[in-house]
Amino acid sequence: MTAFLQFVVDVLALGGAYALMALGLVIVYGILRLVNFAYGELIMVTGYTLFLLGGSPLPWILMAAVAVLMAVLTGIVTDHVAFRPVRTKSVTAVLITSFAFSTLLQNAALLLISPRPRSVPLPDIFSETVRLGGVVTPVRNLITIATAVVLLALFALLMKRSVLGLAMRAAAANFTMARMLGVPANLVITSAFAISGLLAGIVALLWLGRSASVAPGIGLEPLLVAFIATVIGGMRSLEGAVIGGFLLAFIDTSLNHLLPQDLLKFRDAFTFTAVILILLWRPEGLIRGPAAGRRT
């Protein structure tokens, strides 16, 4: 029973983080058909902002807010540098610019800060553990679960109830038609990147809590996670991304328990082979998104 409860907490905590990561990637892909390779760098930017604010007398929550804001801004900059100027050109061009922008940010961090990991300030509560019904778990895990629940609920509310949310869902289904109803393209695009940055920024705070440090390559793993979760969940479906995130966390956690050590190190090879197979079977991902879809 305890082992089971432990497993559930692990899956929920990991799944919450994965779901937020996937959602941040899909919100941009679903609307703009852009696979944003610079997505992981939003997490890196959050980390480095925290690191740079580390010596300041600000309360942690304020530092965190500034760090998340930086991720939002970087998201918007991604739009202006890597997406908007080439959006009417080829799909390939947009992919390459986002890949180049990702490399640009990583190497800027190498150049301006350091290739070595830097420690980020975190509140003490992140490193404490609690005992819950016989299960010992880091408080961080519980915070992650709570954050994921709150953010996902807020996000769902935004998408279902607000006019902006409606406009974004409409744009995801048919961008041109949404524009012909007066929805400004730029508003939708900027919102998508900003929300992507917000999700990445918040998930970064939780993710950084695992190692308490940031390095230029930190964004790669979240990017890969978001890719897989997205492919599992359907590349255009927001609900799918969330389900995909939790499913991936379930698979990962199970494999950690089940696979022998020799095979465990090949885990990425297994999951990515699965990604390829899923895409072959269903190029739009396991869970189908909105029916029609057109680029701008």
Binding site: P85, S90, I96, T97, A100, F101, T103, L104, N107, L110
Partner: peptide, 23 residues
Amino acid sequence: GQVVGLTEVALACAMILFLILRP
């Protein structure tokens, strides 16, 4: 510290500029 990453930054900028101005 060590200066690293300058070449990659330059190449990334050049790539983005090329894709925008001369795709």
